[in-house]
Design a protein around this nucleic acid. Structure first.
Length: 270
DNA sequence: ACCCAGGGTCCTA
DNA sequence: TAGGACCATGGG
């Protein structure tokens, strides 16, 4: 497992290197990681790097595809993360039409304004706020985190989560789970797929952003290369991609995303 | 002064 | 159901 690669692949935004370890916020706790996995925590220790997945079997299945074989050879240590669902939800609401350095700044501001504190290895951190704390904030307080027109969506998400059970969604069929999330204002299909893939164990979720839809068109002749604009278009592209890439298409998506970003001249920059 | 950023929503035909 | 405008903000 390559922690640096995984933590800098557009899945998480609140991780930093201190010394020879990575430290990151995952909900109410601080996690410590290296290439062996999670090696410390201020609280509980989740399966953040999805060690329970049979990664060899997943990679063997994906290797049947030429593009993915290339991507997996370039990024052998890349993994999907299993994040705190509420933090993941807010992260990708914030990500809409933004860029990674700014998403990171916005989320750090949210932790600073509303989050709790935790300590690990003698360092102090601000953790991610609870849904109740963030949902109880005033819109102007959220706006001061630099989140612009997404600010009311952040509040809507936090308040929705207060009367919602992520475990209930985790147990639903994929399409139904995605539907439950897109019922929340500010969460469309792409953001819902990020939440499902990165925090709720839906490995068939494929976040269809501008980069992935281009890659699916270029490499597989799936879709038009334009970002899907309606549910019908999104489902059509998603269904065809899963048919082509299999039930772990979410992993495939992450290898492709990393590769096309690196090859674009606009590599992921932290 | 432009254009773009891991989009979503609302309006129109 | 498909196409367009608009949305705040910061960087190149």
């Amino acid at each position: 497992m390559d922690a640096g690669l995984t933590l800098n692949s557009g899945q998480v935004f609140l991780w930093h290197m201190h010394g020879r370890y990575w430290y990151g916020i995952d909900g109410g706790v601080v996690l410590k990681a290296d290439d062996t996995g999670i090696v410390g925590s201020s609280g509980h220790t989740p399966d953040f790097f999805r060690d329970a997945d049979d990664i060899d079997a997943i990679r063997a299945r994906l290797r049947r595809d030429t593009s993915l074989r290339d991507a997996m050879e370039r990024y052998p240590g890349l993994r999907i993360t299993r994040q705190d669902p509420f933090q993941c939800m807010v992260s990708f609401v914030v990500s809409a039409n933004s860029n990674i350095p700014r998403i990171r700044r916005n989320l750090e501001a949210i932790c600073r304004a509303f989050g709790g504190t935790a300590a690990l290895d003698g360092m102090k951190f601000r953790t991610f706020p609870s849904p109740e704390r963030l949902g109880g904030a005033h819109i102007s307080e959220v706006r001061s985190c630099g989140t612009g027109y997404r600010s009311p969506y952040i509040l809507a998400a936090a308040r929705a989560v207060c009367s919602m059970d992520f475990e209930h969604i985790r147990a639903m069929p994929y399409r139904e789970a995605r539907r439950a999330l897109t019922a929340i204002p500010g969460i469309g299909n792409k953001v819902a797929d990020c939440i499902l893939l990165f925090s709720l164990d839906f490995l068939e979720a494929i976040p269809l952003d501008r980069w992935i839809v281009r890659a699916l068109q270029d490499r597989y002749d799936i879709g038009t290369g334009q970002v899907p604009h309606t549910d019908t278009q999104y489902d059509s592209v998603h269904d065809e991609a899963v048919r082509r890439l299999g039930p772990h298409a979410g992993y495939a998506q992450q290898y492709l995303f990393r590769m096309v970003r690196d090859d674009s001249g606009k590599p992921l920059k932290w």
